[in-house]
Amino acid sequence: MTHVRKTAGAAAGALLIALVIAGCGGGGDTALTTTVTETATAAVSTETEASTAAPPTTEPPTTEAPPPMTQATATTAPPEEPAIMPDVVCMNLQDAQDEIQDAGVFFSRSTDATGQGRSQILDRNWVVVAQTPDPGTAIGEGDAVLSAVKIGESDSC
């Protein structure tokens, strides 16, 4: 079918060129225009016939009933244990975030402990000086907040 569309497209393009030439030439070659028109019409007819042809028949899918539910398939997985906040104070910010992820929480937040509101773009250049919540506390996504300063700035570590 792709070949048919390419043929139809080429024929239509040739028709357009012939019509432009005929229009620009003030009379043009009538035989050329007629030939291109017939070719384009035949190609479009072929494409229409190909696209409206009945799809090949396939056997209907078989439907089987699902197996009956047994006690073994009805049981649910045990609930996951909550993530516990690790102690990450005095750690490199990137390493601290990795520890929190290892505990089971993907998303933690960080802030500039100096109060200047700087963003922690390159986490390896920052050190954690405070954390919320305290170590050992159950945490969820976004609960962990790490206060950090740039490495080399005054900190309590």
Rank of each mutant, 00 (worst) to 15 (best):
D134G: 08
D134M: 06
T48Q: 05
S108E: 03
D102L: 14
V36N: 04
S156A: 13
A54P: 12
T34G: 13
G27A: 08
L122E: 14
Q120P: 04
A96S: 10
T75Q: 13
T132H: 09
M91Y: 11
G25C: 15
A50Y: 01
L122Q: 13
P135H: 11
G115W: 09
T63N: 06
R124F: 12
T111I: 12
P56M: 15
E49G: 05
Q97V: 12
A72Q: 12
E81N: 10
A42Y: 01
D112E: 04
K150V: 06
T52E: 00
V88L: 04
T30I: 13
Q71I: 15
A103Q: 11
S110P: 04
V129G: 01
L15G: 00
G26K: 14
T114N: 07
T33M: 14
Q101P: 05
G104P: 03
A65Y: 05
D29Y: 04
D95C: 13
R124Y: 14
I139N: 01
E38N: 04
A83P: 05
T37F: 02
V44A: 00
Q94R: 14
Q71E: 15
Q101A: 07
D29W: 05
T73G: 07
D155W: 07
D134V: 09
T2C: 01
C24E: 14
A130V: 03
T63A: 08
I100E: 01
T76H: 11
D123H: 06
S45F: 12
Q120K: 08
